Simulated assay, not measured.
Amino acid sequence: MRGLCSAESRLLPLRRLVTLCRAGGFAATLYPPDRRMPRWIDILRVADARASGASYQDIACTLFGEARTRRDWHAPGRSLHSQVRRLVAGARAMAAGGYRDLLRRRERGTSAPDA
């Protein structure tokens, strides 16, 4: 059984290679979109915004719209503010080397951790 478990993680890359060799191209069905991609894109946008000097509130306006930011930024519980803080923390973690874990997990076919 151990051989089967370790073989399973290697099947997808092998299927991709066989398809590439036979068809001469990549099969979209063998590269399913990752469900966390929208978050990773937001983290990248936040990293760029912070590097350009944007404030947390500026980031909220860009990502969630000015109307929602005006309405929810100082609301009780400050969930919008917390959401931006988590995205900034994720951007910092990725910049500090977290992107390497993301790449390693993609190679193994597992999901990346939430940043």
Score class of each variant (00 low, 15 high):
His74Leu: 11
Val46Asn: 02
Asp34Ala: 15
Thr62Pro: 02
Ala51Arg: 07
Ala54Trp: 09
Gln83Tyr: 10
Trp40Cys: 00
Val84Gly: 01
Gln83Phe: 05
Arg85Asp: 13
Trp40Asn: 02
Ala47Val: 01
Arg50Ser: 04
Ala54Tyr: 09
Ile41Phe: 02
Gly77Tyr: 07
Pro76Leu: 14
Tyr56Gly: 14
Tyr31Asn: 11
Ser79Val: 11
Arg68Val: 08
Trp40Gly: 01
Asp42Pro: 00
Gly90Asn: 07
Pro32Phe: 01
Ala60Trp: 02
Ala27Met: 04
Ser82Tyr: 14
Val84Glu: 02
Leu17Phe: 08
Ala60Thr: 07
Pro33Gln: 13
Arg39Tyr: 00
Leu17Glu: 15
Pro38Gly: 09
Gly25Met: 05
Cys21Met: 08
His74Arg: 07
Val84Phe: 13
Ser79Ile: 11
Leu87Met: 08
Leu63Asn: 03
Ala60Tyr: 02
Phe64Ser: 04
Cys21Phe: 05
Ala67Phe: 08
Ser82Glu: 10
Pro33Leu: 14
Leu44Asn: 08
His74Val: 03
Ala49Lys: 00
Leu80Ile: 00
Arg70Asp: 10
Ala96Tyr: 03
Cys21Pro: 00
Asp48Pro: 02
Ala67Pro: 00
Tyr56Gln: 06
Ile43Gly: 00
Asp34Pro: 01
Gly24Glu: 05
Arg35Thr: 06
Ala89Met: 09
Arg35Ser: 12
Ala91Glu: 07
Ala51Val: 06
Ala89Gln: 12
Glu66Asn: 03
Arg36Ser: 12
Gln57Lys: 14
Gly65Lys: 05
Ala91Thr: 06
Leu63Pro: 03
Gly77Arg: 01
Leu30Val: 11
Gly90Gln: 11
Ala47Asn: 01
Leu80Glu: 00
Arg71His: 12
Met94Pro: 00
Ser79Gly: 01
Val84Ala: 04
